[in-house]
Design a protein around this nucleic acid. Sequence first.
DNA 1: AGGTTCGAGTTTTTT
DNA 2: ACTCGAACCT
Length: 765
Amino acid sequence: MTEQELSNPPTDPDTHTDDPLLDDLTPPQREAVTHVDGPMLVIAGPGSGKTRVITRRVAHLVTRVGIPPWQVLAITFTNKAAGEMHQRTAELVTERQARALTVCTFHSLCARILRQYAERLGLPPGYSIYDTSDQKRAIKQALNDLEINTKNFPPGGVLSSISNAKNELIDAEAYAELAGDFYSRTIAKIYTKYTQILDRNNALDFDDLLLKTVSLLREHPDVLKELQDRYQYVMIDEYQDTNHAQFMIANALAGRHKNLCATGDPDQSIYGWRGANIKNILDFESHNPDAKVVRLEQNYRSTKCILALADALIKNNAKRKHKDLWTDNDRGEPVQTVTCRDERHEANWVVEEFRRLHDDDNLPWGQMAVFYRINSLSRVMEDALRDAGIPYQIARGTAFYERAEIKNAVAYLRCVVNPADEVSLMRIINTPTRGISDKTVKAMQAYALANNVQIDTLLGDPLKLTVVNTRAQTALAKFGKLLDTWRHAAGFGTEETTVVDDPITSLSLRGFVEDMLRQSGLEDACRNDKSDPDHERLANLGELVSSAQQFEQDFELELELDGGDHTPSLSEKLLAFLERISLVSDVDAVDPDQGAVTLMTLHAAKGLEYPTVAMIGVEDGLLPHERANADQQELEEERRLCFVGVTRAMKKLYLTHARYRTVFGQSNVTIPSRFFREMPEDCITEIDACDDDTGELADSLSQRSLAGREAMLYPSGSLVRHPQFGLGRVIDIHPTGSHTRARIAFNTSGTKTLILQYARLERVE
DNA sequence: AGGTTCGAGTTTTTT
DNA sequence: ACTCGAACCT
């Protein structure tokens, strides 16, 4: 469900044109769409047709004004949003034009630019992109090297201090100069060390992608000019959530031709905690005195009730520019605020209500969504939905890549591509166990530090490690050989054997990943893992192979469509695959056509819309979150978060809270959110679900049907289709833990155990 | 060397 | 309640 999919602003007869790109737009929308040169700010309230305006403007620039499509750059907040925007623009222009557009996130744009200009920055091409857990490992390493206690400086906290500094473009040196107190002086030391570790590992963290791009643009005027001329029309969506580094990049790119179009809504700024600066959008006009400003205030999405509630809520923010939110839509039903006993009751109440909507009102599952402030609330909701046999999906695209077995597999791939990546190497050097002990590893690190060599050189020459015994040396050498074999196969030759891999004879990406999983012993380790009798982990590795294959196909198709006769080599495909894996976001996993109830955090819900929305856990301490209670600014951000959630709903909205909530296995009394008191009574129906016993009934019902109505969707013997493995027949299916596994005999690929949540199975009748 | 147990910290939100 | 790491045992 994307913005504006279901809404159609009425035609205004006075300003009718014959241009199909324009004639169904309101005057302000049209004003924004037809603006060509010079800066423009579009302040777009929720559901005001912002996405429509952006896609139409791109189409207008390309097909009416005659701007070459490759000069247009559109930056979105997630890959998912980029994909959708690209898709919707493609419907308005030719296929060739659509392909020439650049639509992506800041991070993937930066990764692309950095790869292109790597040698100008002295950046070796196989650089790793570290995610939060890799970053934490690097921080721990830094703390260890500096002999600082992790008790006083928890890696997470240190990381966020460093991240905040990076987002403000403050490097370690500058940080040290600013540091006054003991805490910041220590952070400065860790920051310096952390930077050294990343450099040594040839790794960038998320912030570095932006940071390095800023320095590239600053220090290489010729590169800047090249990029400015390449991207003459720059559009940034969700401008209220840009941080300082992103602001610098946007303004540097648009600095020459001045065609910067920013769209967003200050009331939906919800990423302040990660360095987003709401001032970027508020001060747009003073940064660009000649800017055209368009305000889109009419809402086409929600009922009057929902919008009135949202408006009343957001008016409580003191630091806010006034906006008139209005709609011609029906008044609709009142918003229901529901009091439940505990989180289980709450989940069951929502499930019962959703089932009623589905069965009685014929509302498809895909048009319902559940939002929550923190991820941990998804658990109960999931259990209730699964027990009720209702199909659901969770917007956690990164969850798959956070699994230990997948992280290990990815670490192997990174080590192949980037020999300097010590964080990844340490992860896998003895996983699965191969006779390399902690002691041996410590000795390696000590030697590498003392002799200032890259740690992986020791794998080629373990005899240097005189302190470890022969057995360990042999194990190291063997492991080194294995890595070398893969590097060779993938086309990352060692210096003297720079292998130009021949795309005809070289392995496919899928084949490479499969070989690596087998030869590394990861596959066998999962197969023999007694703690995982259902081979869930093995199935996950299988999913990684499919995703590699899927990526390979898409990547080759993309290049083919680009017109070049260039067939990508295995090494190119591997680099691109790793980059993709690093930059997936949670909402990227949401498939609106899947016909399933969607669960996500309020942050992930930004930019989406659903006919029916339930927001759960609307309690003080959760929304607003307790960590934001003290600070007025943060409280206002929590209110904006609530505003974002409420304004996603088109027709029906439920706000639920539980009297007791179990945290860490302890049941605690809760207080309803203070935001309830800010909502107008005439928009609300209060329901006390504790009065009736539907919840209790649901409790007992769900217990009985626990063995899974989900399994009924794919009964044994039914014919299914898998995107990679093709047609197959279900042998058996069981719900286990948080997943449902199915054994499926495929016609061409043999029998595989798949997890329904990851395998995109399709029932074939 | 490798597996097991016990304790601590964990949960805010994410590219 | 659950996961991760460190000490401890085989």
